[in-house]
Design a binder for these strands. Structure first.
Length: 267
DNA sequence: ATGGTTGCTTAGCAA
């Protein structure tokens, strides 16, 4: 199974790129963030022609998340359903081919200390609680999306300069560790260890051609899924050219589920 | 120096 996640920064503005990317890379599942359209404006028909069914949690202007798959995503849940503020469309969960998939758009956080910052920290705490309440780390689970947090210094172009900002602050890094502590592995780091692998570059200051980015888009996998991970990466190429999203798609590939190979009797 | 770019909605906000 090839699983991908992409913050498209408006599915309307990115529709042509999205369709081209799907045709070329043909993932089994694609999680989207920042749709920025209501359900009436979501391109269901074009995606259907491209061979994908979509489950969406949409809202006008801001936010919006989706899960695309070859077959209709099942058992769809939208929002946390925890009695808290679910007015921002930032979370959708669905089952695809035996894997529970979550597409998450963690709040950016505005400025440290602001109301948005408090909302971000609270939202990340609620995500951890949602996982505990609604998911099973002993089953195949992929938590995908724009986390708006870089996990480690090697995920940041200039860690000293970014230290303490909303994307690389000790409090949100700790909140991310709490989420990972549910039993989730960072699939990219199962495969690659080097610094300089980024998924987001600011539109300004020629950040992309200078590779001044951060890795804030993640595919986290529970142990039963992570042990089947055979590849992971970031499609930096999609960030090139005219009017890209400011995020590149990230992906992970998993071997089919099945019994472990029996040890050879001659071993 | 709080700049710069893009997108949504139409001057200001969000990222």
């Amino acid at each position: 199974m090839k699983l991908a996640s992409w913050n498209v920064n408006s599915v309307r503005a990115r529709e042509a790129r999205l369709l081209r990317w799907l045709e070329f890379h043909a993932p089994d599942v694609l999680c989207l963030q920042e749709l920025k359209v209501d359900a009436a404006a979501f391109p269901f028909e074009a995606l259907e022609r491209a061979g994908y069914k979509a489950a969406i949690h949409a809202q006008r202007t801001y936010n919006g998340v989706a899960i695309l798959a070859r077959r209709e995503p099942a058992e769809v849940e939208r929002g946390f359903g925890d009695g808290g503020d679910d007015s921002q469309a930032r979370l959708i969960a669905a089952s695809v081919d035996g894997v529970r998939v979550i597409s998450a758009y963690v709040p950016n956080g505005g400025a440290v200390g602001s109301d948005k910052w408090g909302y971000k920290l609270e939202w990340m705490r609620r995500l951890r609680e949602y996982l505990v309440r609604r998911c099973d780390p002993a089953q195949p689970l992929a938590v995908c999306g724009d986390f708006n947090v870089a996990p480690e210094p090697r995920d940041v172009v200039d860690p000293a300069a970014w230290e303490g900002t909303v994307l690389f602050h000790p409090d949100v890094r700790a909140a991310l560790e709490q989420i990972r502590g549910f039993g989730l592995a960072d699939t990219l780091r199962l495969q690659r260890q080097e610094p300089g692998l980024y998924s987001w570059w600011d539109y300004r200051m020629l950040a992309f051609p200078r590779n001044q980015g951060l890795r804030i888009d993640l595919i986290l996998a529970s142990q039963p899924l992570a042990e089947r991970c055979r590849a992971a990466g970031i499609d930096r190429n999609e960030r090139k050219g005219k009017l890209p999203s400011d995020h590149a798609p990230v992906f992970a590939e998993f071997a089919p589920a099945g019994p472990l190979p029996r040890p050879s009797p001659t071993a």
